[in-house]
Structure formats: structure tokens, C-alpha cells
Amino acid sequence: MKALALAIVALVGGLLISATVDFPDWGDPASPAALHVSPRYIEKTMEDTSVPNIVTSVLADYRGFDTMFETTVVFTAGVACFLLLRRREPRPGPSRVYRHRASGVIVEMSQAPDTEPAPEVFKRIDDDWTPHDLIVMNVCRLLIPFIQLFGLYVIAHGHHSPGGGFQGGVILGASVILLALSWDLRTASLRMREVATGLMSAIGVFIYAGVGALALAMGGNFLDYAALAPILMVDPVAARSLGIFFVEVGVGLAVMATMVLIYKNLASEGRLDQGL
């Protein structure tokens, strides 16, 4: 088996390397990829959309359909993880572990209690509990708001600098995952509940498709943001820029919520009570 795999890998690698002789040189400004389609985008982007970041304008406007279904792919992946993993019953062994806040004594209850003990007195901890590191917890607590602010900046400033909905959404999702890693999954789940993650990822896709459908209703083509100019009360070129911003917000929402949804289900094997 290993010999067969090695033969296949060597054959494919050799064929690919022999094919690279015909490829354009690295960084050649006259390579075929740089000659036919892309100059049109580079030269006309400002005229068409007034967005200096060509990647953003191509992503959300010229290739808007592609990105819309890309967002749908992300949403579908979240739904698939949810359907594969999510289960309602608690972990095998219904014991729960609490720490008495004042004394630090750890109590294990073999039966899950009907009513949770008062949270000011007892703190529930994971049963494969590691002592919480005060420095890690507090540094993360201080950092997370700034990380989220930066995520919002990356989404909103994607027209003028590297960034956009996907990148900003991942940063926002990472901030919630950082909270789950440095505190615990329950703390993160209290800040962003399961219903919220599901709803937000669906709403993100809905915003994107909704902007497209609104353009259709205003008499333009689907996702032709210039048709939104009468509502936004700007000229059609600026309307394209604003339309790109709206769909980027939708993308950001969907990506953030889906990242958190996937992480929570993976970390807790779909039980969402405790995990990494």
C-alpha cells in the first residue's frame, strides 16, 4: 500500500514538475493571467464601484453570485456540523463538579442536581478541570473587546484596506473562541447562545440574498447594487460601494456565527455543556 502510494505521489509530482517548464515565470507582468481579464477590473473599479480595494469590489460586486453561495457554503457547513454532532442528553455519567468560591474546595455530585447551587457560592467547573490561570483569564478578558473592535474595523474598512466580511467575521468568531478557551465553554455560551449562533448565521445569508432581491425589486438585476441608489439617496456608483458594505456585513455575521457554532459543537462533542 505504501509502495503504491509512493509510486502515485512520485508519478504525479514528476508530471507536475515537468509541466512547470511551460508555465510563465514567477512575477512576469506579461503572464497570460495578467493580460486578459484582470486589467479590466484594475482600471475600471473606481469608475464602476468607487471601491479602491479591487479584491473587495471583485468579491462582492463583479463576482457577487459566487460570494453569496460561498456564504451559503459556510452556513451549510455549520448546519452539517450541528446535525452531525448536536445531541440533547448530557455526558455519560451525570456527575457535576463544583468549586466553593470562598474556600476553593471542590465538590463532585454523583447525580446532577435538580436546581443549580447558588452561583455566587459555587462555581461549576468541568470534570476534566485544570486550574484556571488568573493571568490568562484576565489578559484574555481585557483583550477580547479590542479584538472584537478590530474585527468590526476590518469589516467596515474592507473597502480601503485589506479586509472584508470573511476576514472580519473570522476575527470576531476567534474572539468568542478565545473566551471559550481561556474561561470555559459555558461562559462563552452565556455570551453567545446556541440560538444566537444559528440565527445569526442564517440572518447573514439572508442579508446578502436580501440585498440582491431588493435590487431585483427596484428594477435592476439580482445583486446589481446600483439599482439601490433611489433608496440610499446617493448616485449609482456610491450605491455600489454601500451595497458592497451591506453584503460584507451579512458575510461577517454568517462567518462569525458559523465559526462559533462549529467550534462549540466540535469542542463539546455536540453537548455544549463543557469542553476545551
Binding site: 512575477g27 503572464s31 495578467a34 484594475i42 468607487s50 471601491v51 480595494n53 479591487i54 485589506p162 456610491a238
Partner: peptide, 21 residues
């Protein structure tokens, strides 16, 4: 790496504010 060009910068237009005339 296919997108790279010698002597070119990142695909964000400079002096891109305003409406591009």
C-alpha cells in the same frame, strides 16, 4: 503566486478616495 507581478503593489488603488475621476 500566479497573480504576482514584478514592480507591482497590492491590489488596492492609491489615492482612491473620492469618486475616481
Amino acid at each position: 503566486s500566479i497573480g504576482a507581478k514584478y514592480g507591482a503593489t497590492i491590489p488596492i488603488l492609491q489615492h482612491g478616495s473620492g469618486h475616481g475621476h
